[in-house]
Simulated assay, not measured.
Amino acid sequence: MSQPQIKFGILGCADIARKLSRAIILAPNATIYAIGSRSHEKATKFAASNNFPETAKIYGSYDAVLDDPNVDAVYIPLPTSLHIKWAVVAAQKKKHVLLEKPVALNVGEFDQIVETCELNGVQLMDSTMWMHNPRTARMKEFILDREKFGVLRSVHAVFSFTADPDFLENNIRIKPDLDALGALGDVGWYCVRAILWANDFQLPKSVTALPGTIFNKAGVIVSCGAAFQWEDGVTATFRCSFFENLSMTITASGTKGSLHINDFVIPIEEKQGSFTTATESRFNDLVTGWGPLPSQHTVVNDLPQEALMVTEFSRLVKSIKNDGSLTEKKWPNLSRMTQFVLDAVKTSIDKSGEPVSLG
């Protein structure tokens, strides 16, 4: 028996919307019901090139999607500067909101989005896809295993890619009026989330931007890094960049073991992902090698991680819509925490690397 399907509307035709459109089609409990763009022609072309159902409604504005009473939820892949406007309007019109990251330009804007969603009883979730991959849960099990991993002491995360000249000149992620956080918001978001995830979402005591931040000619960050410190001595660093070879790594080190993953944001293979762990590693007598050797763990998933995200979001929406359940606070809380730390990194960058206390 097929599952009841949550009807999605999509606001805009951004490149990332191609991936999420496919995810909605693959999710067993969701369907694409409508898409809206600033022009009907653009929306029509996008729907045709991305295998939308023939029944999908095509609208020439975002408002038309939000005014459609049959739309249950919306996916918002618009530039970050437009999130507060359209997420708030969507929530006011009782549409559940799946929001691209970074969720806002700052935590104050995001708080307005959260407040409106809460007032209108709609679910809010950001589109950090790797959080929904079963591999992520398996990795967390290892980090929490006191016998194998011990106690967390440090985390290092990297997300970078080498952008082409057209990207560096024309992409919205380097435009100060559209995505003013640049690389920090685009790829740094994942690094900050990874660090918080590894340390059980405990906020650091302080955040310090590392030297070497690069800005483009418009003043937007295109490469940066930061260091975090916790009261108990745990430390973390991250690096994000539009100028370095594709890298998506997390290294977490504990008192007994360590974990390493090479592709945490987007798995090298869509339907499976691996990570390595090591426990009580030592050099051999001649210090010519070491052991026990790290072990590799492979986790298979039936659906791509973005489809698993849509499935979970749709499950929450269905529970609210049909069963009278309350909204799940976990996801907005994780979004806010990530944005809060991101803001601190940006503040430290603006203050030439001055440490910023998170209270």
Rank of each mutant, 00 (worst) to 15 (best):
A17V: 01
Q229G: 11
A27C: 07
T298M: 08
N216M: 09
T128F: 01
S127L: 12
S247I: 12
L98R: 02
T338N: 09
L210T: 13
S39K: 13
N70S: 12
S325A: 15
T249K: 04
S335Y: 00
N262H: 14
R146M: 10
D200V: 11
S223D: 12
R135V: 12
L316F: 13
V234A: 06
C117F: 09
A194T: 14
R138C: 09
N106T: 11
H40V: 12
G60T: 01
D164W: 08
S314C: 08
D285G: 11
S247N: 13
R146S: 14
S258Q: 12
F161C: 07
C117S: 07
V65D: 00
F275D: 01
A104K: 02
E100G: 09
I76G: 04
A157R: 03
V265T: 14
A23I: 05
E141H: 09
S335N: 01
C240S: 09
D179H: 05
A64C: 09
S37L: 03
Q3L: 15
D164Y: 08
L105P: 06
A90G: 07
K318G: 15
T251F: 11
N70W: 09
V103L: 02
I16K: 13
N216S: 08
K93I: 05
K148S: 05
A43R: 13
V65Q: 00
L286C: 11
L286T: 12
D323T: 07
L326A: 14
S223F: 05
F275R: 02
N170Y: 15
K19D: 13
L184D: 00
A180H: 08
V187C: 10
T249G: 00
I250S: 04
S314W: 06
N333L: 15
F201R: 00
E115T: 14
P304M: 07
